[in-house]
Design a binder for these strands. Structure first.
Lengths: 231, 231
DNA sequence: TCGCTATATTACGAAATTGTTAACTTTTTC
DNA sequence: GAAAAAGTTAACAATTTCGTAATATAGCGA
């Protein structure tokens, strides 16, 4: 089926053991890391430790229904961004509105067709992880258009050679995240390029001449980080 | 789901990241090209570069509300015809009149139902894009008539051999988009033609003799791009 | 505050990329 | 089938970008 590394964690929640098994069987084949819960309460218990990237959950469950469970999970700050996919039976009284309101990303109508399910899940998780080459990055007056290979700051055009452009793109795409020189070389220069670490400094400096200096901060001994906060 | 090529550009504007993500997920599935903004100001920054066909925007936003933003966008001559669709919460104090006054095409009441949203958007954009295979390309004084295989600049006839004509057509049809030599060879020469990459350079040069030189820009290490902007 | 270490800055040369020209080949036209 | 036009290639020139190293500056712990 699939030989690549998936490794994404998925929590399966359903009170019907058959469904759980069906899901487990099909997703295990895809190398996902799985956990199972039989009801909403159990899901809540598990989720904090397991921290799945995606939760596949039946809407209709005893004890606590899917909507309610989703709402409680979304209320936990560190799990706010967990993806949730609901399972619902055809004709089941199901308020689509309530589901999306509770933070659902999608839903699937039972009976489950394994092929469709798997491709849908692959799609959801691929999008989430594959750090897409977003065509437009906009943050703090800075607009980077990767299609045009052009960037503007407060409307004024920035002249950015390739390396500077790529470096700025990478930093701006991951604001408030620190990268050390090695990481930047790896991500921007590529894993096969062998240059001295200090090269990064020089490019950082050139960028600082073109955008507000404080946008790129130095954390001594740690790395560089893009952030539009002043202090 | 939708397997066809949409390619229409949509700008999403909302201060709630969850809504943005929800919209992004559902529209990306439809192959739209997306950009996101978190507030009105950012939307304004982006819009000039991105030139979306449609803007989906929350009405209530900090910094600058949707109505105000829409008004400013509509005030930019080249964006006058951009479609705008507002998002508004039920019961939100929302003057429909003001919205349409600001140039809105439609509005949607939250919570968002993805299926409905997508079909509504498909409908809006389909209606708008009766786009044929574009037999006439006109941009910045340049008029290319593919049916007649003729081109003029500022009214004067350009003498363009076939390859030059095709190359210019392709570039002008995709303004502000960068292509490297490989892509141009693929698209203009065809996938079965085997010529040296640098052949492109020579044709680019010949074109530059016939239209304002700055129309075709070189991005070192990246490719060529057609743009009528001067700098 | 001193001294050590990490980062900033600068300038310069090497490397990579593109521009330009002209000779050569292929295709088209008459 | 010859002449003209178009297309391709290759060589060399011009340009830009990049990486390095040397030096200056700043931050941090003792």
């Amino acid at each position: 089926m699939n030989t690549q590394f998936n490794q994404a964690k998925i929590l399966l929640v359903d009170d019907d053991p058959d469904i759980l098994e069906l899901l487990e069987y099909n997703l295990a084949k895809e190398n996902y890391v799985l956990a199972k819960a039989h009801d909403g309460q159990q899901a809540l218990d598990i989720v904090k430790q397991f921290k799945p990237a995606l939760i596949i959950m039946d809407v209709m469950m005893p004890v606590m229904d899917g909507i309610e469970t989703a709402r409680k999970i979304k209320a936990i700050p560190e799990l706010k961004n967990t993806l949730i996919l609901f399972l619902t039976a055809r004709g089941e009284e199901f308020t689509e509105v309530a589901a999306f309101d509770a933070g659902a990303h999608d839903y699937i109508i039972k009976p489950i067709k394994p092929r469709a399910l798997v491709s849908r899940i692959n799609a959801i998780l691929k999008r989430d992880s594959a750090e897409e080459s977003q065509e437009i990055i906009a943050i703090g007056g800075l607009v980077i258009n990767r299609t045009q290979y052009a960037a503007t700051f407060d409307g004024r055009t920035l002249v950015l050679p390739k390396k500077e452009f790529e470096l700025l793109s990478y930093l701006a795409k991951n604001p408030n995240k620190v990268f050390n020189r090695d990481e930047l070389l790896e991500k921007v220069w590529g894993s096969d390029v062998y240059v001295v670490e200090r090269t990064v400094d020089v490019h950082i400096r050139k960028l600082r001449e073109k955008i507000p200096e404080y946008y790129i901060k130095t954390l001594k001994g740690v790395g560089y980080l893009f952030s539009i906060e002043k202090a």
